[in-house]
Design a protein around this nucleic acid. Structure first.
Lengths: 148, 148
DNA sequence: TGTTCATAATTAGGCATCCTAACAGTTAGG
DNA sequence: CCTAACTGTTAGGATGCCTAATTATGAACA
């Protein structure tokens, strides 16, 4: 076993511990929030870029289509999104935010971002910089892990 | 609204996006793994430091006691942990890894760490350094978010 | 000593999220 | 055409988490 590999393994170990904490913290953020769960907010947020098919929603969220269907149905029932049929392909369904959905996604996202920002503002400048430069790295790691 | 706050909000926004991805990636890692779910592995891993009460397990995992009871019962049924009564307090239950539990926690953790390590090894050195220095920052952010 | 309050864990009931399998409708290629 | 591939939904089931109520034990104190 070479040294390079051992170091990567050790880094992987601590990274995985951080991942675990991320999951629990995210759940905690959801608990106090009665309006939208984390999954629902993620779904609405991705629709802010424009309409998306059910299968696109599923892929973006990292879930199977029946799960996306279920969430969309729930959000539709509460008036946050609507289904339209795709003019180019009548099998497909395009999901869009309603006005109420737009309002909700902005309001809830701002509220949650403020909770995080309050913590970030108390970080040492060096730590803040470290966080800032790590985020794109995290994203690229997640992308690669998803592919496998 | 001052500039400092705006920047923190923007950083919070991208950090939250990374958090969301972390949740889904973790779920993905669980799906392929039939032996233990993420929660179960976390539970076993924390027991590797020694026996713990049900309430300690719950606190470490960030869940309520009934949830810990449920997970412990399930793992007990599969022979990974056992319950012992606390000699100092007969209300309490101490949970410990069995031999099979030890074996499982080492095997599964190594497997998952290798999957992450494989990605880390392909990072640019600068990115790897960025990841390394960000992990303690992440941990401290999570700690503070949990307190609130 | 005996009452009362606090603590540890479990049980019961319920909800959100996810999955696979099976199905219906639509499109597209041979 | 006719079959294979694709889009989305429905049906059924598992997991993980929660709150409220319950059982049993411990601790404090009049």
């Amino acid at each position: 076993m070479n040294k390079e590999t051992d170091e990567a393994l050790e880094l992987a170990r601590s990274f995985r511990e951080a991942l675990r904490q991320a999951v629990y913290v995210t759940r905690r953020l959801d608990v106090g929030e009665t309006e939208l769960t984390g999954t629902q907010l993620s779904l609405l947020t991705l629709l802010a870029d424009g309409g998306a098919r059910v299968s696109d929603v599923a892929r973006s969220l990292g879930v199977r289509t029946p799960t996306a269907t279920e969430q969309i149905t729930r959000l539709e029932g509460r008036g946050y999104v609507r289904r339209e049929s795709d003019p180019d392909d009548s099998r497909a369904v395009v999901v869009r935010l309603t006005d109420g959905g737009w309002e909700a996604v902005e309001r809830v996202n701002l509220r949650r971002n403020r909770a995080i920002a309050a913590v970030i503002e108390r970080l040492e400048p060096a730590d803040r910089t470290a966080l800032e430069s790590a985020i794109p790295v995290l994203t690229s790691i997640y992308d690669r892990l998803r592919e496998e």
